[in-house]
Amino acid sequence: MNWLTSYTNLASAYIKINFKSLLAYRGAFISQMVAMFINDFVWIAFWCLFFTRFPVVKGWGVNDVITLWAIAASGFGLAHMIMGNALALPGIIMRGELDSWLLYPRAVLPHLLLGKSSASSWGDFLFGIVVYAIFVKPDLPHFSLFMALICSVAVLFVGFSVFTGSLAFFMGSAESVSVQLRIAMITFSTYPSPIFQGFVKILLFTLLPAMFVSHLTVSALRNMSMLDALYSFGGALGVLLAGIIMFYVGLRRYESGNLMEMRG
């Protein structure tokens, strides 16, 4: 409990200073948010067009897909507006910047993740909430569950970013690999889940855990199913755990100096 308060305080201190830092360039911050809005909106427009022609795809209607986009965007946004360094992890490892983080009397991983806020993620976060409120017009219980699911998805994205980012401990060209994996995961998680079957479906429940973003959250909201919400949370925690293990195993290599040959 002590630990929890201590790190909650740390998180709030970092959120404050990150926000202040972003506001130092207000114009750039706002234009990055707007850019994300436009970018995300293209996809909403695509789905609206698609569903005017084909109203139902394997039981999914336009509201389901918009809900999915809203959760994925807000979840991704929430994850990286608070823990923006999750996206920068491979670079931090490969450039030897972990050193500075190892000098503080704090657990390395959470502290490091809090260290930066991704400006465009604020746009993603707001976009999802606005789109959900305007297009789906939820009642209070749905909206509350929606917010809870955002948190679950955020945990999952942080976990996945940490997992893929930690590959940099083990291989030299991890930066592009981890970006590609992340993009693949995000892409898979923003399409109606029932279109994926067979082997790929298994893949999306495991190595590229997109199903925890797309499938379980939407069905949880559609049926107000607490069980599906719990599964989604469970999956998110599992991914986070895998990420943490990967990071600390890799950190041991870092501390032994075995990465030196890659950094030159």
Binding site: Q180, I183, A184, T187, F188, Y191, I195, Q197, V200
Partner: peptide, 13 residues
């Protein structure tokens, strides 16, 4: 890799 993912997803869709 991205191209592969997109084409695969649209094939499914």
């Amino acid at each position: 890799i991205f191209l592969f993912v997109v084409l695969y997803i649209f094939l499914c869709l």
